[in-house]
Design a protein around this nucleic acid. Sequence first.
RNA 1: GUGGUUGUAGUUCAGUUGGUUAGAACGUCGGAUUGUGGUUCCGAAGGUCGUGGGUUCAAAUCCCAUCAUCCACCCCA
Length: 455
Amino acid sequence: MAQKPSIPKGTRDFSPAEMVKRNYIFETIKEVFRLYGFQPIETPAMENLSTLMGKYGEEGDKLLFKILNSGDFAGNVQDETWTEKNSNKLTSKISEKGLRYDLTVPTARFVVQYQNEIIFPFKRYQIQPVWRADRPQKGRYREFYQCDVDVIGSNSVLNEVELVQIIDDVFSRLKIRTVVKINNRKILSGIAEVIGENNRIADITVAIDKLDKIGLEKVNAELSEKGVSSEAIENLQPILALKGSTAEKIAQLENILSGSGIGLKGIAEIKKLFGYLGNLQLNTEVELDLTLARGLNYYTGAIFEVKAKDFEMGSICGGGRYDDLTGIFGLPNVSGVGVSFGAERIYDVLLQANLFPQHSAETTKVLFVNFGEREEAYCLPVLAGLRKMGINAEIFPDSAKMQKQMTYANKKNIPFVVLAGESEMQAQKFTLKNMETGEQNSVSAEELINILSQS
RNA sequence: GUGGUUGUAGUUCAGUUGGUUAGAACGUCGGAUUGUGGUUCCGAAGGUCGUGGGUUCAAAUCCCAUCAUCCACCCCA
């Protein structure tokens, strides 16, 4: 046996059966995006490293896949650069491109680059793979798809409302019961301000984020370890302990944050958002969750996270608002708000719950068994008629054994088989077999098309 | 980046204190069945035991190295 071929760690092949399922998710998501007026863009798999570096923090830079320069990349490097063995320095000499790490930064680049052509507010969606040189583990890959939908260039809370509607719409169609958790960065900033730790927002939010994971005590321990004063931690306790309905939480927070301008601004936004959402007939639950911080530190307003009920699984969708999306590329004061659907995790949920449709537009509906040349000729016009009606149909290309052809239909999960041999030809009929019930009928060409276009 | 796990047939895995020719299930192919699949029965093909070295009369089994894999942590989707 020759050496077994393989693919890089953390990457995957997708079989036809898997692609049918994946496309079901992507198509459902796209349909909903279009329904709200979003249009697709695509950007290249690779970006200039100058576009990517420094946008994801120090960790992120390490997790970027870098592309070796073409040609004689080593020739221009000075000897001392090699011998110094400083990877960072060396990298900049031999690599100037990298694989995209997410879709947000390329979109920001896109907006800045085409700012004079883009119609604002820019409502775009983008479904493409991204790459991270992370160490893969369960449910985490080095190549995976992101399904982003964003509105860029509008500060209106109406966008947040519509994003929640989109989330509701998508998961209703996929039949996944969800709860949408919402928070606001300004409230978190307000909290930091009120407890007197203005510039420790990052540490505080990261710690708060872990509240339901590691518990109150460990969060407090982590906070003091990070250098947050014990007084501030003390002041934080009533906030962490907030209970009750969203409306009740908001009322209490309004009180607590009365001394913080930014905090009150956040309250106002949240109030408006929940006010709108309250009047909509949503299937999903929506709640204010102050422990929701998300690691990304560029969010400045609303923060979203969607969890699947009935499943032990991380979030299946998340996002938020960032007020200065494009500033780093030289276009300040452009706000963006969006969410990203986690296709891989949604796939796992649908698979576990057996929620994928049995047959889709991408599977064959009917197979014609091949009995020989004369029979082939007899079948071809009907086959063409079926396809004209938009029915996926195929004929087995060789007059192989019947058993083999039936097995083929069975494995491809084709629901109908047509048998047309000598006796059928004589009677100008076709035998239509239902592969699920085993039942079969003799029908004319016209009836065949009628039956298949209706079932 | 840190810690651990496992590498045996296409796949999932057995394989005794080291001992003759390395097994099973599923899958594949063929047959029972020249026009009937998914359920039955019979048969066949398929392995340099991840790779390299060492210990031994003898290694899938013990030791070392190396590569790969999966899992957890950090972080994230």
